[in-house]
Design a protein around this nucleic acid. Structure first.
Lengths: 341, 341
DNA sequence: TAAGGCTACTCTAACGTTTTCGTGTTTATA
DNA sequence: TATAAACACGAAAACGTTAGAGTAGCCTTA
C-alpha cells in the first residue's frame, strides 16, 4: 500500500509548518488567502484525508461501537445488528462486530481486545457457555470502570447496566391466549433447557396464560429439548403419543417447523388436529405450508434501542440510572392456527 | 467512564520514566528485578492494558478488516461474515462491518470512513445501486494507492483486485443437468434483472446446460423478476399458463419457495408435475414441504477465502498478481426433484 | 589508576493530528 | 514617530506507546 499523504508531507512541500497546513485546511482566517488556496489545492489533488487513528487518539474517542454476539448466522441476531448499525450510523458511529461462538473464552478475549481503546462502548448478548458457567468477571471489570455497556436479549441479572430484552413472557402469553381462544385445550410447550434465559421466560408466559385461562397445568406437556441431540427424534416424542396435544407452542422457529413436519408425517392436519405457534427469528415460518403463526420479536427495534441506550451513555458525562427497555412482541397470525369455523 | 491507567501514571507513581515502565512491563533485562517486580504488581493490580489506538498509530497497523456488504439480514451474507470473522480471528484480526443498504452514497461514505486509517484492508460486495450506476471512482481511488481490497460475490470486472466468486455458471449448470436427468423437458428459469451479475451468470449456466443436453432454448421460459413489484404475482405468471413448464430453476431461495407455494395452490404436485430447484441462501428450502433441492453456495468458504486473500495482501509487501477464487457449488438434492420411479 | 564494561536507568524521536500560545512583520493611528 | 493593532505564521504540548541511543555510577582488570 502506498503511504498516505500527511500534514507533515504537505508542510514540507510548501516549506511551512504543520500547524499552518492544518489551519489552512480548516479554512482558518489565521492563514492568508493565498497560502490557504495553494495548500488546499495540493491537498485536494493528493486526496488528503486526516488520519483517523491520530484523531481518535487525540480526541480520546473512536466513534466505534463494539458488538459481541454468540452467532451471526442467525436471523434474529442479524436483524439486531441491522438495527444497531442503522442508528449508530445516524449518530456518526461505526460498528465492530465480534462473535463469541457461544464460547466463554472467546467472549473474554473479545472483551479484552475491544475494551483497550478500540471502541467507545459495548453491546453484548451473552454466550451460552458464559450463562452456564455463570462467570461474569469480565463484565464486572467493565462495570467497575463505568465502561459503557448494554446487554440485550441474553442478559445477566447480577450485572448492573443498561439492558434491552424481548417481552418473552408477554409473547408466550399472547400465543397461548390465542390458542385458547381458538379452542385449544391441551397445549404443549416445546422449550429449551432451563439455563437459557429466554426459554424459561417463555415458559413463564405459557404457564401464566394457562392459569389465567383456568387451564390445569400438565407438566407432561412441557418438553425441554437438548440442542445437542437429534431434534426430530425429541420432538417426535411430543406428538407421537396416544393422546397428542391439540396445540403446540415452540420457543423458536426451527422447533415449530420440525413439529409441523412431524405432525404432517403422522397424517394429522394443521391447524384442525393440532395448531402450532413458534417464536420467529427468520423467514421459515412464512414459507412452510401452512405458514406458521408466530410471535414476532422485532430484532431491529432491539438493536436500535440498544444502540440508543449505549450512545446516550457514551455521550452523557454524568451516569444516570440504568435503564431496562422491554421490546414488546406481537402475534403474527397465519394459517397454522386459523380456527376452522 | 473512568480514565484508563497509562504508562505515564504508573511512571509518576514510582518516580521513574515512562520508558522504564514500558520496559519493565515487557520484562526487559534493562530494568532491575526489583523495579520490574513492583511495577508489574502495580500494573497488574490496576489492570493495565496498553492502549490499542496508540499502538495502532505507532505501528501503522490496525489489525482490523473492514467489510462492506449490501445487507446483513440475509443468510448468505451472514455466512460470509462468519467465514471472514473466523479466519481473521485466527490471524489476529478483528472485523468491522458496515452496510451499504444497496445504496451508492452509503457505500462511498463507508469507504471514506474506513480507509482513513481505521482498517488495514477492505472486503466488499458491491451495492446494487453502484452496479446500476456503474460509477466506480471510490474503488479506483483505492486501487491507485494499492490499498488492500478484495471483492466478493458481486464483483466489478473493470476493477483490478483480488476477487472471490461463486461458481454461479457451474451451479446453474448442475441444477439444469440434474433436471434433465430426471426427465424434465421444459425447464423454466426464474431470474433477476440483467444488471445483477449473479443473475446473469446463473442464466448463462442454465443456457449452457440446455445446449449441452440438446434442448432447444425457449426464451418464453425465461422470466426476469423485478424485486420492486409483487413477487407472487410475477411468479404466478410463470406457472399459471396453458402449457406450464415441467421444471423450474429459481435463482434464489425465495423465488423457489414462492414458486412451490403457487404450484401447490394450483393443485399441481411437486415434483411429479413440476420439479423445483432454488439457489440456497437460508434455511427455507429445508423446511418447506417438500423440501427444496438447491444449489448450495458455501458462504462461509467464500468469506474465509476472501479473508485469506486480503490478509495475504496486507502482510506481503510485494504486490503479487491478483487472484480470482471460484468457490464451487454443489447440488443438495431434496424431495422437490426426486424422480418418482 | 585509567580503561573498559556492566547495570539501571533516562532521553528522544516517531506515529498524525489539533489547538493554544507566542512572535516577528506590517499597517494604521495618535 | 512612537505605539498599538492586525496579520501570518511557527513552536510546543498533548493523546499513549515503543525502541534505539545516550549516560551516570559502579565494579573489574591490567
Amino acid at each position: 500500500m502506498k503511504p498516505r499523504i500527511t500534514l507533515k508531507k504537505i508542510a514540507k512541500e510548501f516549506g511551512v509548518s504543520i500547524s499552518t497546513v492544518s489551519k489552512a485546511l480548516k479554512d482558518s482566517h489565521e492563514i492568508s488567502e493565498e497560502t490557504r488556496g495553494k495548500i488546499k489545492a495540493f491537498a485536494d489533488y493528493y486526496n488528503y484525508k486526516p488520519n483517523n487513528l491520530a484523531l481518535q487518539l487525540r480526541n480520546q474517542k473512536t466513534s466505534v461501537i463494539g458488538v459481541i454476539i454468540p452467532e451471526i448466522v442467525h436471523h434474529f441476531f442479524s436483524t439486531v445488528i441491522n438495527g444497531i448499525e442503522k442508528y449508530a450510523n445516524e449518530k456518526g458511529y461505526n460498528v465492530m462486530v465480534c462473535l463469541s461462538n457461544e464460547s466463554y473464552e472467546k467472549e473474554v478475549s473479545n472483551f479484552t481486545v475491544l475494551t483497550n481503546g478500540s471502541v467507545d462502548g459495548l453491546i453484548v448478548s451473552v454466550a451460552r457457555e458464559t450463562q452456564e458457567n455463570q462467570i461474569y468477571k469480565h463484565f464486572e471489570a467493565l462495570i467497575k470502570d463505568d465502561f459503557p455497556l448494554v446487554l440485550f436479549d441474553r442478559t445477566i441479572d447480577e450485572i448492573q447496566c443498561d439492558k434491552v430484552i424481548v417481552d418473552d413472557v408477554g409473547g408466550a402469553y399472547k400465543a397461548v391466549d390465542h390458542l385458547v381462544k381458538i379452542g385449544s385445550k391441551r397445549i404443549a410447550l416445546i422449550t429449551t433447557q432451563d439455563y437459557i434465559t429466554v426459554g424459561s421466560l417463555r415458559k413463564e408466559g405459557y404457564l401464566k396464560a394457562l392459569v389465567s385461562n383456568d387451564i390445569t397445568i400438565d407438566e407432561n406437556l412441557i418438553y425441554k429439548i437438548d440442542d445437542n441431540k437429534d431434534l426430530h427424534e425429541q420432538i417426535r416424542k411430543v406428538i407421537n403419543v396416544k393422546n397428542p396435544p391439540d396445540a403446540i407452542l415452540a420457543v423458536n422457529e426451527i422447533y415449530a417447523a420440525i413439529a409441523l413436519k412431524i405432525v404432517q408425517e403422522l397424517g394429522l392436519v394443521v391447524p384442525n388436529d393440532i395448531a402450532i405457534i413458534g417464536f420467529t427469528s427468520g423467514l421459515i415460518s412464512e414459507y412452510t405450508s401452512p405458514p406458521l403463526t408466530s410471535v414476532e420479536q422485532h430484532g431491529d427495534l432491539m438493536g436500535r434501542s440498544a444502540a440508543e441506550l449505549l450512545i446516550n451513555r457514551i455521550e452523557s458525562a454524568d451516569s444516570n440510572e440504568f435503564q431496562k427497555e422491554v421490546i414488546s412482541t406481537n402475534l403474527k397470525i397465519r394459517k397454522s392456527t386459523l380456527s376452522v369455523n
